[in-house]
């Protein structure tokens, strides 16, 4: 199943974010990233690299989806951006320490290992918690929320109008196809 920037917009609309210019308005330049933090390119690369691990293997188009979704989430939300920066930097530092390379530069199986060794699978998400809990909140669960609260992600598991998505009031009335 192929994710598109249109799916990202659908996921964003569920998160209450609508962009006046639609897909075209989403660009790295449109987001006023903090000068003090890491570069937006690095942050997006880390998120995309994580998504390639936590999304199912039959999902395509991850990079464009993650970029569009994340840019939409970041725009105008400084506190959120700070949290994402903090968590992605922590993930990068862990990868450098354990694997001698940045997270996004690792092979997918090594990225998976880093996340597991960090304790992320069993960590409870917490924006103010331990490193694993913050990575779970701002990276892994952020990406899973984007996917499974969207119609495309929902369809992967059998529901085209998942919770959090404004998919209308026709689908609940329909029988299985």
């Amino acid at each position: 199943m192929r994710l598109t920037r249109r799916d990202a917009l659908a996921a964003l609309s569920g998160a209450g974010i609508t962009l006046g210019g639609g897909v075209a308005a989403l660009s790295r330049e449109s987001v006023d990233a903090s000068e003090a933090g890491p570069s937006l390119d690095d942050t997006l690369a880390t998120l995309t690299a994580a998504a390639e691990v936590v999304y199912p293997s039959d999902v395509e188009g991850i990079e464009a989806f993650v970029e569009a979704y994340s840019l939409g989430r970041i725009e105008g939300r400084d506190e959120y951006l700070a949290g994402v920066h903090d968590a992605t930097v922590a993930l990068d530092e862990t990868a450098l320490s354990w694997e001698d390379a940045r997270f996004a530069a690792l092979a997918a199986d090594r990225r998976d290992t880093v996340l597991r060794q960090l304790g992320v699978p069993t960590a409870d998400e917490d924006p103010d918690g331990t490193r694993a809990e913050r990575v779970r909140y701002y990276v892994v669960n952020e990406l899973l929320y984007a996917l499974y609260a969207s119609p495309t992600g929902g369809e992967l598991v059998g529901i085209e109008n998942p919770q959090g998505h404004p998919g209308g009031v026709a689908s609940y009335q329909r029988g299985p196809r």
Binding site: V53, N141, A149, G154
Partner: peptide, 16 residues
């Protein structure tokens, strides 16, 4: 599914 996804100790194909 979305609420469950955020609480599981798996990701990728296993979570799906």
């Amino acid at each position: 599914p979305v609420a469950m996804a955020l609480r599981e100790d798996a990701w990728g194909d296993e979570l799906r």
